[in-house]
Structure formats: C-alpha cells, structure tokens
C-alpha cells in the first residue's frame, strides 16, 4: 500500500514552521535586549516575572544626558569608515598584483599576508600600545583608524583577490590590445568587474572594525576616542553599578549599523566569508 503522500502545501507549512522557530530562537536575544532597553531600571532587576512590562525612556534619557553617546557613535563611524578606505586603497592594488602578475614568491607573499590574520591579537597588544604611545597617538580616533585598517587589511586583500581571480583573463587581454595601460585596466575593467567583491570586503571589514574591542580599549582612554564597543563596558562599573537597561540600549544602537550592512550585502556575504577564510 502506498504511503499517503504529503501535498506540496503541507510540506511548505512544515518548512515555514521549522524555519520560523529557528528564526525566533536567533532573534530572541535581540528582542530581549530591546525590551530591556525600554524598561525602567527597577523592573529589569526584579526577581519576579513581569508579564506586562512598563515602557520607559529612562535609559535613553540617561544616555543622552550623562553620556556623550553621539560622540562615541561619531568616533566609531570615523574610525571604521576611515579604516575601510585605507584598506581598499592598499588592498585593491595588492590583490590585483597577487591575482595577476607572475612573480617569484607570489603564493608565499599571499599566504604571508593572510597569516597576519592568524596571530592572536593579545600577542601584539603590548607592542602596539608602546608604538602608539611613542608616536603620540594614544587616545585618538586616528590611531583606531590605523589599527582597524591593519587588522582587516589581510582579509580585505584576500577577499578581493579571490574575486579578481574569477575575472576572465581574456577581459584584460582585450583591454590591453585595445590600448589600455595596466592602471587603466585596473580602474576601468577590473574594479568595476569585481565591485561586488570590493563592497563585500568593505562591509566585512566594517563589521569587524565596529566590533573591535581589545585594541580600542588599549588606545582609547577618554571620550576622545571611545567607540560604541568600548562605551558599552563603561556602563558596567562605577558608583551606579551595572546599568542593564542602558547597556541594552547601547548594544542595540551599536547593532543597528551592522544589521543594515549585513542586509545590504546578504547575497555576497557568505561567499566573501568563505572565500576569504577557506579558499587558498
């Protein structure tokens, strides 16, 4: 006897149920800290369950009045955007050379660039601190910009390189016989052709930079250079104790730009990540 077959509709319902549950599990922490962020502080730390939470902008008022949150956000944006620009300026020509020119030790150089990524950041933390102290860049947004750029340069180079490898060699041959110089080819043919890769690399670098904590903590000591990621830590101590609702709200504010970036490049993100990380 034949088994009763599932109709298309039934299996679709099942599929949505499974995916929906999974999405809910993933979204729950985000919804949770959003809800914490908009509740009064007393309600957040009460041991009894609360079924109908009170909506409150306490945390928001606290942030705006007591903390230079706009300054933190601005620091984050300047340091991150600047680092991405530096990365692209350096990585695009490097990736082009690594993907196209034949030269001795090309593979070794490529691997060496990637290997800088494998080092535990803590190992270089102390030298970096003294380096920036010597050049007088402690507690400065510019220092953060340089550090973020350095951290992500290898990854950005590697991702862009993998996209450039996919561009048919014929395209460059055609441009060359059409009379274009190397620089023209890079600018007019290669960069437009691997623009999705460049954007992906830039967004990934931006996400890593926004989340960077260790070096930021090391370099930044005042609101001059505090970014969103380090500012979060400021709410956990001091005479006020741990201000949970403010932390939740700042987390959310820090999270939104990343969310927007990820949505923008959703299509390319997984490819960028796996290529950068896995493909040799």
């Amino acid at each position: 006897m034949a088994k009763p077959r599932k109709t298309r509709g039934e299996s679709l319902v099942l599929r949505y149920a499974v995916l929906g549950t999974w999405a809910l599990i993933c979204l729950l922490p985000i919804l949770w800290f959003l809800s914490i962020g908009f509740r009064p502080r007393t309600e957040v730390i009460t041991p009894e369950p609360i079924y109908f939470p009170t909506f409150s902008l306490d945390a928001w008022h606290l942030l705006v009045s007591d903390w230079p949150i706009a300054q933190y956000l601005r620091n984050s944006i300047i340091a991150v955007a600047g680092s991405v620009v530096i990365d692209l300026i350096l990585a695009i020509p490097a990736a082009y050379a690594l993907s196209r020119y034949e030269f001795k030790g090309r593979e070794d150089i490529g691997f060496y660039i990637l290997s800088t990524r494998m080092m535990a950041p803590a190992i270089v933390a102390v030298p970096i601190f003294f380096l920036f102290k010597t050049v007088g860049l402690l507690d400065s947004v510019w220092a953060l910009m340089l550090i973020y750029a350095a951290i992500n340069l290898s990854l950005v180079t590697w991702i862009i390189r993998s996209y450039m490898l996919d561009i048919p060699k014929e395209l460059e041959d055609a441009a060359r016989t059409d009379g274009a110089s190397d620089l023209r080819i890079l600018w007019e043919i290669i960069i437009p052709a691997c623009l999705p890769g460049i954007i992906t690399a830039a967004v990934i670098a931006a996400i890593f930079a926004i989340n960077e904590f260790l070096f930021t903590l090391l370099i930044a000591s005042t609101a001059n250079a505090y970014t969103m990621s380090v500012a979060l830590a400021n709410f956990t101590g001091g005479s006020d104790g741990i201000i949970y609702n403010a932390i939740a709200l700042v987390s959310f504010i820090a999270f939104v730009p990343i969310l927007i970036l990820v949505i923008l490049i959703q299509k390319h993100l997984s490819r960028g990540l796996t290529m950068g990380a896995v493909k040799g």
Binding site: L171, D173, A174, A175, I189, A193
Partner: peptide, 11 residues
C-alpha cells in the same frame, strides 16, 4: 583582437 569568450566589458 576578437576573443573566443567575446571579452566584452560587462560593466
């Protein structure tokens, strides 16, 4: 030169 894969600039 004309190429097998056309080699038109896609952008």
């Amino acid at each position: 030169m004309v190429f097998q894969g056309y080699a038109l600039y896609p952008n």
